[in-house]
Write a protein that binds this DNA or RNA. Structure first.
Lengths: 232, 232
DNA sequence: GCCTATAAGCTTATCAGACAAGTGGATGTT
DNA sequence: AACATCCACTTGTCTGATAAGCTTATAGGC
């Protein structure tokens, strides 16, 4: 039963995996031994099914390697799946801030290129949806949470226009980073009206189907929108 | 026991997940009902533990959504985890070729930027390792398999120099795509000596710490190395 | 008739205990 | 010292229960 507290925020294996992941992230040596099923049984008092699922979760993040007959071993942190929303939540704040900064740097590389491709493929329907989102953003400048969601949708919609599922997947992960970013620092990075203006600039470049201008507008936007809470 | 054939190429849940994934990828409607534990038990004759793990695998790829009490539902294909080596293997060839083309397009976006950043951060040790890899490539031009491995290591090593774990993860996935690419089309795309020359150009730009030149050399390399087996 | 509350029957989640299969090291033999 | 065998330990799979959450239908009250 894992604990006297009976609240069930999430599934049991996920909770166990979270504890183990934090422990590994905090003080794990690649190549070293990972938690065995038996250890988990004793420490958490859960059934073997739960222990196994927890390990499977860690394995799916490439944090550990499981093989029949062999003990669980820790994998190098450079190869963990930092694109997963699970791992994001389980990293110590120090590492999390680093990752978020790296994620933002990656956005600056990828999204301008996406905007350029999107400008080429832009259709009337897409533009209409983008226009609607833009209007909604303009009307939600007093509601940061709603604004963030619209912001994410706006970027995702542009990405979809590029018709590249790999890039789609990247943007999908990007969503979690930005929500995590919001979570650790509640302050708004900039005045929302200014953000709306930059989004409008991107939108208009897309309307004009001007690849170079869309690329540049996106780059300017992202460079201004510095990674939240990362003054370093 | 799943089948009369007793060969064990991989774990049982993975096999089941593979069959289900192919089926879903072939004719699945987002929002529709996915396979239930009961259905899997009856169809494959496996235990519930195996059926559950198979479903968990599909869920980790964002192909299905599992919740207690509710039936399993199919998630939209646009949000599947195309970065996973599992999914790559399970896609029908048609879709796989599309994805591989999109993956290559993504490389052309990301890797030149990586090369530029790497040029800035390049150290003596990294350069030495890259030089060693380059020499090994030159010596392995008659062994396509060994060459591919060295090629992948070369690109990964450059990425590591950029010190960005998100980009690392992308390159890590890229490895699987290229191995899959090789798998479906055994022909070598180009003469290996020519490839070595292009790698050497990248290497020399890195030695000179010339960001622009490294970026351009990488771009030229990738544009030449068209996605294998994709004449379309 | 309409709304609500309860209950029944699905589904997935967790538990328990067993046996199978693979690995690695200890043991013992040559 | 080299090799084969065995044994302890690990993960993989099976069986059959019980718990918990959701959906639907049914019965009751208004």
């Amino acid at each position: 039963m894992m604990d006297t507290v009976e609240v069930k925020l999430q599934t049991l294996p996920k909770q166990v995996a979270g504890v183990l992941a934090r422990r590994i992230a905090g003080s794990g040596v690649a190549g070293g031994l990972g938690p065995s099923e038996q250890q988990i049984l004793q420490e958490f008092g859960v059934s073997r099914a739960v222990a196994r699922e927890a390990l499977k979760i860690l394995a799916s993040l490439d944090m550990i390697e499981i093989a029949q007959g062999r003990r669980v071993v820790l994998r190098p942190a450079e190869e963990w799946d930092y694109l997963s929303p699970l791992l994001i939540d389980w990293l110590p704040h120090e590492q999390m801030r680093e990752i978020l900064a790296e994620a933002h740097a990656t956005r600056i590389i990828i999204e301008p290129a996406i905007a350029a491709i999107a400008a080429k493929h832009m259709t009337k329907e897409k533009l209409e949806r983008l226009g609607t989102l833009l209007a909604a953003m303009s009307a939600s400048e007093d509601n940061p949470d709603a604004y963030l969601k619209l912001d994410l949708d706006f970027h995702m919609e542009i990405c979809r226009a590029a018709r590249n599922r790999i890039l789609d997947r990247f943007m999908y992960s990007s969503r979690w980073w930005q929500m995590a970013s919001r979570r650790i620092s509640n302050q708004m990075p900039h005045a929302l009206p200014s953000a709306t203006e930059m989004h409008r600039a991107i939108y208009e470049a897309l309307v004009a189907r001007d690849e170079k201008r869309a690329e540049e507008a996106m780059r300017r936007h992202l460079k201004k929108t510095t990674a939240v809470g990362l003054p370093r």
